[in-house]
Design a binder for these strands. Structure first.
Lengths: 235, 235
DNA sequence: ACAAAAGTGTTACACTTACACCCATGT
DNA sequence: ACATGGGTGTAAGTGTAACACTTTTGT
């Protein structure tokens, strides 16, 4: 019930952590990366990739460090979520978690490297219950990503550099949890003028006879349009 | 550069604060409430209404305490913003600010009471520079409010219980920073079926001859529609 | 009667949605 | 030739945006 606005030395008794919800897309499903907790508390439980934020560190930099350790890069799109600060969310003491989510482009090396290190990619539909309040963090991240994907063409960072229209449609269907009409979806996505036909094609499976055309995201054009105040790609 | 995920006793050295950006609407402008800092550091500077979060307190409850102290009520719509956690944002030590914004219905008593206590209502266009990183917090709150007001009919909590269509149009114009066509705006707002004509009317100024009709927000109907999955009132 | 702000309709255009068949290719 | 998924067009309806004059009331 305080309304103090200055600090006593005894107020400096909280610790900081960050967790990063990493989303990827395997061509059919939205997946997220889970770690396994080592040591007590919660030994062996699933958790989100997380780290302690030390005194002089900025939370975003710690999140980027996590990404570098996991993926070798830290330039993936990263967005801060609300912080999670219930007094008793962590049994070790009062810890505030400043969480992020990020979008990565899955590749075979990335999958292999991470699985060797004890991380697992799990379809977001099937994520097991996690320690701390990480279930809540993940649920929040999914909502944020949904809202984000409706307004900005962020989905492309989840896809291989060249992708088919069927792939991007599946991605949007996973992200938003609903089906789209193929013709309408294609019309809309092509109307945005943000896709370049590469001229290449690929067969989607052994059984598929006819190959699909491949497209790329036109990053440059998007930058230009964004600067001009063009803002919105609704899906 | 850590990737530690468990805590040393020496990690518990951060303090928590919360600031609340309080928005009101005076019939013509969007205003926000500023306090004056008492005691060092930043003696006499403008700041957002803020308080220390003590060990066992939930941030949201501290924000509500601030609201109760300021307005006598704590049931205003309150939404958490990102936390502000740059290492050197507070000269007293490492303090993480978990900020909120909220929407209140201005009244004469409220204005008088607060001004007596040393708070000031300032048009958001004209907010002076504040201490700490509170400028940034306010800017962030304005953006959030903008996005919010586009999707949900939150504007009504800022207006008197009975209001004219001209008032609500001015509110939306302030909140979103753009002008609307009067006929189109009225058509849209009436189509939503969320306004009830009260039968009362009021003259908007001494010079205005013809009185304006007064409307109320249909809270019940909105609840019903929301439950049915109706979600969106775009403006 | 006049000054002031309140209130009101129509049209053109863009976007959304629903809907079903032919095409290209590999086996 | 056939099986498989890839790829395509149209029409009806709905929402958006641009536009200017008449009405009501107090002085």
């Amino acid at each position: 019930m305080s309304m103090r606005i200055d600090f006593d030395p005894s107020d400096f008794n909280v610790a900081l952590a960050t967790s990063v919800v990493v989303f990827g897309f395997d061509g059919h499903q939205l997946v997220t990366l889970l770690a396994t907790k080592v040591g007590e508390p919660y030994e062996g439980a699933h958790i989100l990739p997380s780290a302690v934020i030390q005194p002089a560190e900025a939370p975003e930099n710690v999140a980027k460090t996590i990404l570098r350790v996991l993926t070798g890069r830290e330039d993936w799109p990263l967005e801060q979520l609300n912080s999670f600060a219930n007094p008793y969310r962590n049994p070790s003491g009062r810890v505030v978690n400043i969480a992020y989510y990020c979008l990565v482009r899955l590749s075979d090396e990335l999958k292999a490297g991470l699985e060797a290190k004890g991380y697992v990619w799990v379809p977001v539909q099937k994520v097991p219950s996690m320690a701390y309040d990480h279930d809540e963090v993940l649920a929040y991240a999914r909502e944020r990503f949904k809202r984000r994907v409706k307004r900005r063409p962020v989905g492309f960072t989840l896809l291989p550099r060249e992708f088919t229209l069927n792939e991007i449609q599946r991605l949007y269907e996973c992200a938003l949890g609903k089906k789209f009409d193929k013709r309408n979806f294609r019309r809309k996505v092509l109307k945005s003028q943000l896709l370049i036909e590469t001229g290449n094609s690929v067969r989607s499976s052994a059984k598929a006879k006819r190959p699909s055309r491949l497209y790329m995201f036109d990053e440059k054009k998007y930058q230009t349009l964004t600067l001009k105040g063009y803002d919105i790609v609704y899906f």
